[in-house]
Design a protein around this nucleic acid. Sequence first.
DNA 1: CCGTACACCGTACGACGTACGCTGTACGTA
DNA 2: TACGTACAGCGTACGTCGTACGGTGTACGG
Lengths: 223, 223
Amino acid sequence: MAAKKHSEASGTGLSKQRVVAEAMRLADREGVDGLSMRRLAGALGAGAMSLYHYVASKEELLDAMIDVVFGEIELAPVDTDWQSAMRQRAVSTRQVLARHPWAIGLLESRTSPGPANLRHHEAVTACLRRAGFPVLMATHANWLLDSYVYGFALQEASLPFDTAEEFADMGEEVYLPQLPPDEFPYLNESAAALVAAGYDPAEEFTFGLDLILAALEPLRVSA
Amino acid sequence: MAAKKHSEASGTGLSKQRVVAEAMRLADREGVDGLSMRRLAGALGAGAMSLYHYVASKEELLDAMIDVVFGEIELAPVDTDWQSAMRQRAVSTRQVLARHPWAIGLLESRTSPGPANLRHHEAVTACLRRAGFPVLMATHANWLLDSYVYGFALQEASLPFDTAEEFADMGEEVYLPQLPPDEFPYLNESAAALVAAGYDPAEEFTFGLDLILAALEPLRVSA
DNA sequence: CCGTACACCGTACGACGTACGCTGTACGTA
DNA sequence: TACGTACAGCGTACGTCGTACGGTGTACGG
């Protein structure tokens, strides 16, 4: 038949980067379950099997996608106090994970960290050590902060709404009716208070984050 | 042909409970990817389509599995101080999620909480409110604690080892060689310290948990 | 002008979720 | 006793998935 010099639809020629980038776009738009090699190839104007010249398997593709996600996280800046630095990178992490919700579910199954992941960890550890945390304490702080950020992103991803207004709408129409007040009195109280006060995930996030940062502060050893 | 009175292999007759329980066993043993309707049916001595008399779809099956997981978590006891109660249920949650690692990855995609999940949330909120946390503060505490627990479980699930000894073995043989000391000086320092000190996920967990609980203490309003 | 390498593709296989329609049995009613 | 209905479970089939394998045309070094 006729293979052209290079594929023509949407760009000239494939590459691992282009494949991974398009895969992320697809996953962002349709979720991980909507990402198949065939659909991905289609979006790139290529045949399914062509992708295997750039990734060894779908697993490897997913690993690569995860590492790009880590690459999107802003590294901790070095010219401020440790709390600001950690807050900044935590906020950035949350934003990135909210932008790519599929990434969180993938973290569980992928066991070996990619280069961007390692760089990120190195930068955070460096910041904590330089701030005066002893080695093991820096590890503790790392686990604590990461747990909070990932866990928050996980919970946020499973919320059926994105904004405060959406929540107000849904809360009254969908949630409350499902909660018999006699069986769930406290949940009803909370839900009502939240609808009244308005709800912003970003504020919720910084509350816990600042609390953790403050609690870590006295565990440093130098000034 | 011949349909027997009831299916005969491994028990007499199916039921949603039996289907869900066997699905969890299968997922525990082989991971979520190893759980297919056909394999599950096989394990139950039934045909694939028979399962659809008890669950409307695989999605519903997964939802049911998640809710059973929440049901396995010990509710917060009511006869102790709030910190002990919260610590206990957090520890139980971690144990349960470590026993069913697939559950964590599933949380991301399932948006409406099952009854066991609701009961769990109600119990936790009740405990916090009774301990003197104002309504919105109880919500904050809830998010904070859950984020930590889920995030920790998520990180733990993606570790390639389960015990401290395994870590010591792997750390020296697999991890360190991958980390060029000039590029990742701090990670090397941490890894070395961890191998030397020994590493126990359970201890790591309680460190962060106790830190969070202590930091929440002054936010109560009554004694 | 030829040979080799490369980029890409078509086909095929086994496994997946599940729609649809069929069985044989149990049991209430006459 | 005979029959009707309901139900538990199954067989087959369709479209999709990941991917092994073996092409095929073009580019380029000799």
